[in-house]
């Protein structure tokens, strides 16, 4: 083993006899990865909702992401690659953020008792955040794994079949609720954590940020839910033709 590491292990100081810079970096990475994921989701859910504009719109968008303007017919491996990158960020974020989970049952109990006594909004929000984070650990992984392994099976019918006929919709519903809440609260936390909108009236600005985030959460939940219902509907209508792919001019 590397000597420097052993020294740091024993003294909590690095070789300049200084406190380790790692916690600072971890903190920054945690926020950065969280922000990237949040940004990703903001667009992801919008793109996903293209189904509301019709199958054709969704199909075109899918093909666009497969870069059909370069590769004839699109290249699903691009999606695989993208999913892999997201997966890395996702895992990185989860690993780092997990430091903040209650480390033992005792800690968890103490937090719960305290939270119930205190009745304090932001403290309760944190509970939502760790719960949703924990859920996404599984749900997100499943989803991302699917996207990495079956990138070609994305499209108005393929997706709808997966959601309806493969019985994935409960998972998506849970994932939707988790990710929107988690990302929303996470972004609010980023704002106060780094003092983004402090300005001259930080308290008012905090309230404002909270309000805006609340409405964004409502908007995204609604958007996601409506999209999901649309997929379910398509899937229901399409169950007889399970596996058949969408292409321009297919019989509705």
């Amino acid at each position: 083993m590397n000597k420097a590491e052993i020294y740091e292990f024993l003294t909590s100081r690095n070789k300049q006899k200084k406190k380790s810079r790692t916690p600072a970096r971890l903190d920054a990475i945690q926020s950065a990865t969280g922000a990237i994921l949040a940004l990703f989701i903001v667009f992801h859910l919008i793109f996903e909702s293209s189904i509301l504009l019709g199958k054709e719109a969704m199909y075109r968008l899918t093909k666009f992401f497969e870069a059909d303007f370069i590769f004839e017919g699109g290249e699903p491996l691009i999606i695989s690659a993208l999913a892999f990158v997201v997966f890395v960020v996702f895992v990185l974020h989860a690993l780092i953020a997990m430091r903040k989970f209650p480390a033992s049952y005792r800690e968890y109990r103490r937090y719960q008792t305290h939270r119930h006594l205190l009745v304090h909004n932001d403290t309760n929000l944190w509970f939502i955040q760790i719960t949703t984070g924990f859920m996404m650990f599984f749900l997100g992984s499943i989803h991302l794994y699917t996207m990495m392994m079956q990138p070609s099976k994305i499209g108005p019918f393929a997706s709808a079949d997966r959601i309806f006929s493969d019985g994935m919709w409960p998972m998506y519903l849970m994932l939707l609720v988790s990710v929107v809440l988690h990302a929303g609260i996470g972004v609010y936390r980023l704002i106060i954590k780094w003092g983004v909108f402090d300005g001259v009236q930080p308290q008012q600005n905090r309230l404002l940020a909270k309000k805006i985030i609340k409405w964004l959460i409502v908007f995204y939940l609604a958007l996601g839910a409506v999209s999901l219902v649309t997929y379910i509907k398509i899937g229901y209508e399409h169950q007889e033709h399970y596996g058949e792919r969408y292409h321009k001019g297919v019989k509705e």
């Binding site: 916690p23 600072a24 971890l26 903040k100 205190l118 304090h120 932001d122 403290t123 944190w126 936390r189």
Partner: peptide, 9 residues
């Protein structure tokens, strides 16, 4: 500072 989780209590 890196222990604070911005709980705002």
């Amino acid at each position: 500072i890196f222990g604070c989780m911005s709980l705002m209590g």
